[in-house]
């Protein structure tokens, strides 16, 4: 039986992996299409404002923009699969290389923020549910309400002002690379990841609380009490596992939104991640870069939902086939 449940988890993994391919393909069509709709052409941007009409026409031909759309799409897709995302219009840099330089920092920031929000959110949510309708619950609920309401960019500015500029505990901007020292590297990530985690921690607190309350009011938890099990075992083992099932889906959505939030937080803290790259590229109408960053983010999101599905299958035996 144990072997059977392991193999059924792998079959879930396999099924979801198969579903990833059409999702990503559909994403590439959307990204390619949206960039075509944006006014202004890539050739005009690449040639610069003073370029003559002839120069632009030559450039269009060189960049392959005169080819039919589906040919352009397929060649872009083919190159992307081979890892070639083209060159930036503004500084002619290799986009794939730029992304591989910047993506780790964004992932690091997001993952730290996610871990922080789980470490804060799950215990607070459980605490709140166990102490339902008393002062602890009320306190946790109002703090998490605040966390949900405050926008990240505003929190980020407050944090920079207080902890970096006034108290000088953390650097205000930038992230020194790991080679310059782990300590400095981590220290510079504290403020950005905490601000990024604030909203997510609040949301996870709320969802953990409601999931726990639902589990605690269930018939099987009444059974657990009737069996004379200890409260610790009932809360943290039997109720929490059931509360985590809906939470895993929420965590997936939250992780995706953390990537989105990272764009803002990176801008405030001037962190050379994917977020700042995307913002700069949009402002400079650097279409190939925008397209590429969007593609990478799509793949990241799809991977997150893949992990979520596998997480659900591990936690909830009923979803296995």
């Amino acid at each position: 039986m144990a072997a059977a449940s392991v193999s059924s988890i792998w079959s879930v993994v396999l099924h979801r992996l198969m579903a990833v391919i059409p999702t990503v393909l559909f994403g590439t069509i959307l990204i390619f299409g949206l960039v075509q709709i944006i006014p202004g052409g890539a050739a005009e941007e690449a040639a610069g404002p003073e370029a003559s009409a002839e120069a632009i026409a030559v450039l269009r031909e060189e960049m392959g923009l005169n080819r039919p759309l589906h040919v352009q799409y397929l060649s872009w897709l083919g190159n992307a699969i081979r890892g070639d995302l083209g060159r930036s219009l503004t500084d002619r840099r290799n986009i794939a290389k730029a992304i591989t330089e910047r993506l780790p920092l964004t992932i690091e920031l997001t993952v730290i923020a996610l871990i922080l929000s789980l470490l804060i959110g799950i215990p607070l949510g459980v605490l709140s549910a166990i102490n339902r309708h008393n002062r602890i619950d009320a306190a946790v609920t109002s703090v998490s309400g605040l966390g949900l309401a405050l926008p990240e960019f505003w929190l980020a500015m407050l944090a920079v002002n207080l902890f970096a500029l006034k108290l000088g505990w953390f650097p205000a901007t930038g992230v020194p690379s790991v080679e310059l020292g782990w300590h400095e590297h981590i220290q510079s990530l504290v403020l950005p990841s905490l601000t990024l985690a604030s909203g997510a921690a609040a949301a996870i607190t709320r969802f953990t609380r409601s999931g726990m309350l639902e589990a605690l009011s269930s018939s099987y938890i009444r059974t657990a009490w009737a069996l004379g099990l200890s409260p610790a075992q009932i809360f943290f083992r039997f109720a929490l596992k059931n509360a985590l099932i809906p939470l895993v889906t929420v965590i997936g959505i939250i992780t995706s939104s953390l990537f989105g939030g990272a764009v803002l937080v990176e801008s405030v803290f001037v962190i050379p991640g994917l977020g700042t790259m995307l913002v700069t590229a949009v402002l400079q109408k650097d279409y190939p870069t925008v397209q590429s960053v969007a593609l990478v983010l799509t793949v990241v999101f799809v991977m997150i939902s893949l992990v979520v599905d596998i997480g659900c299958a591990v936690l909830d035996p009923r979803t296995r086939r």
């Binding site: 269930s218 099987y220 938890i221 039997f238 596992k241 099932i245 936690l315 909830d316 035996p317």
Partner: peptide, 9 residues
């Protein structure tokens, strides 16, 4: 069926 925890054997 409801009285048994669905997520444990």
């Amino acid at each position: 069926v409801a009285a048994l925890n669905p997520t444990f054997t």
